[in-house]
């Protein structure tokens, strides 16, 4: 059984302590919603789990997963940028990440309603479509930990509902989600971690 635990986590960026003494635990099938005002360190926390920001102190342990891999290597980080190349087609963009990061669940494009534009260059997509393509990547690559930074910001209501369904399926399949958000993103029974209240 997969379980992600953090103890006494601290993060320092640009000489400023963003947060410290942070602890949480997420198990398979659970979601953790990270909230807090701007600058409280929501993004920093996600990037720390993804291994993109060095931990200043504390520990981050993943138990029950592949012991050969670090937590970051079992996580999929969905940040503010969509990591798409405008001159490659939608299909090529997705295929590259699937090949590079591993995985390869079929039907990811149709799950987000982009199969009609699979052959078009990603540069023609709108912000919402680009975000859908990022979500397709999330599904296709099938890593157990989803790290979502404001995942619904560019999505319309339909797409948000669709995405809530996809997140539910991921949790039901034994995955876990850590999401940073300002508003509700459609996760029921999520644990909440508020940042920035205790200085």
């Amino acid at each position: 059984m997969l379980r992600l635990e953090a103890h006494d986590l601290a993060c320092v960026r640009g000489g400023r302590e963003v947060f410290s003494g942070l602890g949480f635990a997420v198990a398979a099938g659970e979601a953790l919603v990270v909230t807090g005002r701007n600058g409280a360190g929501k993004s920093s926390l996600l990037r720390t789990i993804a291994g993109l920001v060095r931990m200043a102190a504390g520990s981050l342990n993943l138990t029950g997963g592949d012991p050969e891999l670090t937590p970051a290597e079992q996580a999929h980080y969905l940040g503010h940028q969509d990591a798409l190349k405008p001159s490659l087609t939608v299909e090529e963009n997705l295929a590259f990440w699937v090949q590079y990061l591993g995985g390869g669940a079929p039907g990811a494009l149709s799950a987000v309603g982009l199969d009609a534009v699979a052959k078009l260059p990603a540069g023609y997509l709108s912000a919402g479509q680009r975000r859908r393509l990022s979500i397709a990547r999330l599904i296709a690559i099938q890593r157990p930990i989803w790290l979502l930074d404001e995942p619904t910001s560019a999505l319309d209501r339909d797409a948000q509902e669709q995405f809530a369904g996809l997140m539910g399926r991921h949790l039901a399949g034994g995955g876990m989600i850590v999401a940073a958000t300002h508003g509700p993103i459609g996760l029921q029974q999520a644990k909440e971690l508020r940042l920035g209240d205790t200085p």
Partner: peptide
């Protein structure tokens, strides 16, 4: 780095 691809490359298993 600008379009976020580098973040994903860093989380790769390669």
């Amino acid at each position: 780095a600008e379009d976020g691809s580098l973040d994903l490359i860093l989380t790769g298993r390669t």
